[in-house]
Amino acid sequence: MSDLLKVTIDGKSIEVAPGTTILQAARQIGDKYPPAMCYYTPLKNTGGKCRVCLVKVSQTSEANPRPIPKLVASCLTKVENGMVVENESSAEVLEARKGVVEFLLINHPLDCPICDQAGECDLQNLSYEHGTETTRYEEGRREFNKIDIGPHIQLHMTRCILCYRCVYAADQLTNSRVHGVLNRGDVSEISTYIQNSIDNDFSGNIIDVCPVGALTDKTYRFKQRVWFSKPYNAHRNCTKCSGKTVLWMKDENIIRVTARKNKFGEVEEFICNECRFDHRSKTDWVIEGVRDMGDDSVISANKYELPVVSPAVLVDSKFVSE
């Protein structure tokens, strides 16, 4: 097909359909694709905010061989024919990414040892790959109290990186969004403003789309570290959603139910709250088998006990929230 566009990323070329973004093309090539903390394929309008996916375009297109002067967000920038992109081959990109990771961590509580997301946290993974050992940040950190938003979901705002995914999820999956981003700048927060519970057939999906431990499943909190449980693909007949889920089992108990995610951490099919919260008996489900989490996963790689930054920082208890 002649209308495919050729793009070269870190020296490897691929042909993609018009409209494909640099990030998607890089994911198709498959090895070192840029990280993405805010972009989320299943949710429209996401992306462009966290800036960890910045890459260098050293040639705009065949017709226009000039580079793009600034780094661009690969999650939103569309491929042009003959485009040449530098991701990990560019020192400038790596340096910028290190900077963004540092920014994301300066107000983060670094409370991985007590966070339910530890082991499946995109920020934790990002820091291993792109962060530095120590922090240069010595100022006070942002503080928020953790709150319950509804019977099933807890919000730990200190950990939020303001990716806006949960807001788009509520907008696109439910018919009345009751939470959003309030205030602005570095005191922005995810909130309902008034005491309001996020309660809707599909509200639980905001837990799955959260890249960090800001939105967690209350029914699961502290029951287990994720790496002590074993994931199984399972399904049930459901009138509201596909019923296809992952059951997280410890011995014979279902301790958590989530949607199935692909290797980019993106939900394959959103699930309803009934499947997620109300069916905790094995007899409710048809268990298909153990879910392969892939080699990259922290869950299989056993690297979960490491803190995100230098242990010296964590010792200072004022940085540990709660």
Binding site: R177, V178, V181, L182, N183, Y193
Partner: peptide
């Protein structure tokens, strides 16, 4: 519009 749309704007 939804109340949250007003809160989002008023707090900005």
């Amino acid at each position: 519009i939804h109340p949250i749309e007003v809160y989002e704007v008023a707090t900005f």
